[in-house]
Design a protein around this nucleic acid. Structure first.
Lengths: 184, 184
DNA sequence: TCGTACATGTAATCAGTTACATGATTAT
DNA sequence: ATAATCATGTAACTGATTACATGTACGA
């Protein structure tokens, strides 16, 4: 149940319309909690009905017209409550690891190309994160808020670093492997 | 759409009943693709209807009676097809990172205790993985199948190592932070 | 007036979770 | 007999994804 809180966080940072939120969920917050515009509009409706946010005054009408929201005190309270409440980490769920486990019994043919492709994708993501770090967190002077945001970005950087290293290591194994590991 | 393939992989490794699969999904395969018994029984029904698996001969009847399944050639083919097919990595979705981002705007009070708790949980998981590595992959002699399974376990170990390090780093930051970062 | 980008939404479907129901087997 | 455990399932709900629908504003 984190999507409403992701939206609240984004709206506290800056009041926005649905489409603006959608764009921000394509980067920034979306780097660790993605959402589509359909999810966002639905959730905005619920949050408004629950009295956690409201449409910015300036009476905008219906369809096709921009409608911006801001967080109400109740919304800020709910966000603070959720942030402090204990939550168990979700167990890992990764399809590539599953595919390698499957490859151990049905053969590895075909998977190597996709490992290479994933390596490229993770390298690209890592480069993007590192650009952001250079741009937004120059060495030396992080404010309190910046320090936390930097910490989150560091997690992204370190995770992408892990994946690129692990994928490179995986690919070295493939040079030594027969193309078919399964008993077909 | 990976659950059926996780089950196929488990059943190729060893024909099993629903409950046996459930137990194996609490460890082993479940370490990177978890599933509850409800999901598993539902999926076993679908896989049987689709002709990818079948109940082991020895005419078992209905409720309360054990019923084991094995993978049919069509199931093995489908698993090989899925393993080789390109799939995009799913974007990261992590509630703890979101909570820290939220903490940057509504204050950090309360979250530190949960960071410590997460650190303990990840340390425990890491220790468990390392035991498995020692027990199942002694240095030197990995077969082809073992090499792939070891690779997957390494990913688990390295990921847990990352989390423990990152959480420790995060906690050092908290010593220097005021309890309230938000403008209440 | 036509196409394109902006902007907000609905509907259907799918995957995962939670709560509950039912029967068989075994030990006390 | 009865309680605990093994074993298989149903039902309801929630969250996420995919496809589609509708309307506005603006430039060519």
């Amino acid at each position: 149940m984190s999507l409403p809180h992701a939206i609240l966080t984004a709206l506290v940072e800056k009041p926005s319309s649905g489409l603006e939120l959608t764009r921000r969920f394509d980067k920034s917050i979306g780097y660790f909690w993605s959402a589509t515009h359909q999810q966002i509009y639905r959730e905005l409706g619920k949050l408004e009905a629950d009295g956690l946010i409201r449409a910015l005054p300036g009476g905008q009408p219906a369809r096709g017209q921009k409608k911006s929201y801001e967080v109400l005190p109740a919304g800020r309270d709910e966000l603070a409550r959720w942030t402090a409440a204990p939550q168990d980490p979700k167990p890992l769920r990764d399809a590539m690891l599953l595919r390698l486990r499957a490859a151990a019994v049905v053969g590895t043919s075909g998977i190597e190309a996709d490992l290479r492709r994933h390596l490229e994708l993770h390298e690209r993501q890592l480069a993007e994160y590192e650009e952001i770090e250079e741009r937004d967190f120059p060495p030396g002077r992080d404010s309190t808020e910046d320090r936390l945001r930097h910490l989150v970005l560091r997690a992204g950087i370190d995770l992408e670093t892990f994946w690129t290293q692990w994928l490179r290591h995986a690919l070295t194994q493939f040079g030594e492997l027969p193309d078919e590991g399964g008993r077909t």
